[in-house]
Design a protein around this nucleic acid. Structure first.
Lengths: 333, 333
DNA sequence: CACTCCCTTCAAAACGTTTTAATCTTCCTG
DNA sequence: CAGGAAGATTAAAACGTTTTGAAGGGAGTG
C-alpha cells in the first residue's frame, strides 16, 4: 500500500524530482554530495522505481521477451539460461513466454509482450507465420529468431543446420548396418521436424535407398509420453532396424516403451535422439544424439537483439548457422 | 515505430478516448453500435494497449511474478506449468524469474517484479530471509510461498511435507537391509535439504540406529553434475550401502558416476532420489523416488494468490501441506 | 409541455516518471 | 571587479491510459 514515489524521495532529500531522476539514470550529472543525500533518502524510504511510469515516459523498457515452444524441454531451458545470463549482463530483464506448442498461446504471449512494450523479442516460432512477427517489427519491436533461419534478410537469426543434423543422424544409423528406418517426429508443422526428416532422406538417397521408404510416425507433442505412444505403434505394426527421433524426449519415451516390451536396444533396434540433453547420457541405454550449442544459441541471439536495440544505426543483421555434432553412445553401438 | 494510441483510435472512430477505454475495459457500458465502430477502428489501426500506461493509471497490473530456484530442474518447470495454466485461466500473465540458487539473482528478480508492480509474487525462497518478502507485502504485493511452509500466519503457503518425505525415503532404504546410509544434498541453507535430512534421521532413530551416523555429502548446486562429484567423493572415501539424494538430478548424477566406476545399483548400493521427475523412470537403472504433486502445487498456489489479490476482504489465508508418495523402482529393488 | 430519469458519451484530471530548457551558483579569466 | 563559462538544479511539459463527475439526449410520466 505504501509505495513511495520519486516526489516523496525528493521532498525528503530536499531536492526536486528531476534531480532524483538524474541520480537514478545518470548519476554522473549530479554533485556527489546531493547524490549521497538522495541515495540515503531512497534507502530510508524504501523507494522502488515505478517501471511502468518510466517505460511510459521513456517510450521503451529495459526488458526483452523470450517465447519458446516448450519450456518443459531441457533444450529450451538451456537456451533460456543463455538468454538470461547475457541479458542480465547487459542490464535487461527477460519475460518468458511458453507457447506449449499452441499457436493460440504463442499469440497471447506475443500480445502480452507487445503490451509491455518490450524492447525486443527472441522467438522460436512454432509455426510458419512471419506476418505476426512483421507486425511486431512495424511496432518498433525488434525480433531475433532462435533456432530458426531468418524469414527475411533485414533480420537477425541464429539457427542450427537441421538438414545436416538429420542427415548425419541417419547416416550414422545406416553405417551401423540398419536398412529399415523409422522417423518418430512431432507435428510436421514444426520446421525442425520437417528439416530433420529432409536430412534423413538425403542420407538414405546417398546410401542408395529409396527415401520414400523412411517410415514416418508423427505424434502430437514432442514429449516422452508421446514417444511411448509412437513406439507402441511401431511395435504393433512391425519394428524397423533403427529409429531416429526428432528430439531426445521422444527418444527417451521410445526407449522406455521398447525396453518394457522386451525389445533390446541397440541389438534389435538402434536408436538416435536429437538435442543431446543432459538426460540422454543417463538413460537406461545411454542415448546417441545430435548435440547443439544450446546455451550459446541463447547468448548470441540475445547479443544480436540488444545490439540491434541499442545501436540501431551501426547494427548489421546476421544470419548465424551452427553445425550440430554427432554424439554416439550405447543406443547405436 | 508506428504504435497507435487510444487517441488515434478515438479520432478514427469519431468518439472520445474515454469511450475507447470503456470499450476495452467495460464493454457493457457502451452502446452496441459505438462499440462495434470502436472495435473496427482498433482492428483497422492495429491498436495494442500500452500496458505501462494502464498500469500506471490503474495502480496495478494483471501480472504476477514467479520466482523459482532452478528452472533447469524439471520439478520447477512442472510447477511453472501449473502456475501458467491457472494464471492464464484467470486472465493474468506470468513473469518468470530464475534465481539459479543465488540470493543476489533472487534479489534482482524481486526488484524487477516490484518495479513492474506485479499484482503478487509466487516464490520458492532460496534462503531464509522473510524480511525481503515482508518488504514486498508492505508495498502491497501479495506473496504466496510455493514448496515452502508459511513464514507467518497472515500469509498463504503451499508446501509438501519434506520431513515425512525424508523419513519415508530412508525408512524404505533401511527396509531393504541397508545399514550405512549417505545423504547427498545441496546447500544446507536450502530448507528442503535440511528437512529431508531431518526426516532421514528420524527414520534412522526409529530403526534403532544413531542418526549421527548419517553421512552427509553436501554439494554446491543441485544438478546432475554435482551429483557426479559427490559420488566420486563417496567412492574415494568408501561406499555406504545406500545413498539418499535430496533430489533426482543429484541422484541421476550419482547413478551415472557409480555405474561408470563399476558399482552395481542396487546390488552394491541402493539409491533413492526425490521429486520423481519424468526422467527418473527412464534412467539407466530406473530410480526410486518421492513423488510430489508438482503441477497441483503451482495451480493451487496461483489460485490462492489471485484470490488474495482479487478478493482481499473475503480472502482467508491458507497453509496447505501435501504428503509425498514413495515410488519404488529398480534402484532399490 | 415540463419534469425526471436513465443511458450514453465526453472533458479533464490524474498516475509517476523522464526530459528539456531555463535558472541559479560558483568559479575562473582578464 | 566585471563578464562569462561551466556546473548543478529546477520547473514544467509530456508519455497513454483510466476514472470521475458532468453534460447531452431521448423516453416515459404526470
Amino acid at each position: 500500500m505504501a509505495m513511495v514515489s520519486i516526489k516523496e524521495v525528493a521532498a525528503h532529500a530536499g531536492v526536486s524530482p528531476g534531480t532524483v531522476s538524474n541520480v537514478l539514470n545518470r548519476p554522473g550529472k549530479v554533485a556527489p554530495a546531493t547524490r549521497r543525500r538522495v541515495e540515503a533518502a531512497i534507502d530510508e524510504l524504501g523507494f522502488v522505481r515505478h517501471g511502468s511510469a518510466s517505460t511510459l515516459r521513456a517510450g521503451h523498457s529495459r526488458t526483452i521477451g523470450l517465447s519458446v515452444i516448450d519450456i518443459g524441454n531441457p533444450f529450451f531451458t538451456e537456451v533460456a539460461a543463455g538468454v538470461e545470463d547475457m541479458a542480465s549482463e547487459l542490464g535487461y530483464a527477460v519475460i518468458l513466454g511458453n507457447s506449449a506448442g499452441s499457436a493460440g498461446k504463442e499469440d497471447r504471449n506475443l500480445r502480452v509482450l507487445s503490451e509491455h512494450r518490450v524492447r525486443g523479442v527472441l522467438i522460436t516460432p512454432s509455426g510458419e507465420d512471419p506476418a505476426r512477427l512483421d507486425r511486431l517489427r512495424e511496432h518498433g519491436i525488434s525480433v531475433v529468431l532462435v533456432d530458426h533461419p531468418a524469414h527475411r534478410p533485414d533480420q537477425c537469426a541464429v539457427a542450427v543446420d537441421d538438414v545436416a543434423g538429420g542427415r548425419a543422424a541417419v547416416a550414422h544409423l545406416l553405417s551401423k548396418g540398419a536398412r529399415s528406418i523409422a522417423y518418430v517426429t512431432g507435428p510436421l508443422t514444426i520446421r525442425q521436424c520437417v528439416e530433420r526428416r529432409a536430412g534423413a532422406k538425403v542420407a538414405m538417397r546417398a546410401a542408395g535407398l529409396d527415401p520414400a521408404d523412411l517410415r514416418v510416425a508423427e505424434v502430437e507433442t514432442m514429449t516422452a509420453r508421446a514417444g511411448e505412444t509412437a513406439a507402441t505403434e511401431l511395435i504393433a505394426t512391425g519394428l524397423p532396424e533403427a529409429v531416429f527421433c526428432a528430439n531426445d524426449l521422444l527418444a527417451l519415451g521410445v526407449l522406455r516403451a521398447l525396453l518394457r516390451a522386451g525389445v533390446r536396444v541397440p541389438e534389435d533396434v538402434a536408436l538416435m535422439g536429437y538435442d543431446d540433453i543432459d538426460f540422454a547420457a543417463a538413460s537406461a541405454v545411454s542415448l546417441s544424439s545430435m548435440r547443439q550449442p544450446t546455451y550459446q544459441l541463447g547468448r548470441i541471439a540475445t547479443e544480436l537483439l540488444l545490439d540491434e536495440c541499442d545501436n540501431p544505426e551501426t547494427h548489421a543483421h546476421q544470419h548465424i548457422m551452427f553445425q550440430p555434432e554427432l554424439v554416439a553412445r550405447e543406443s547405436t553401438q
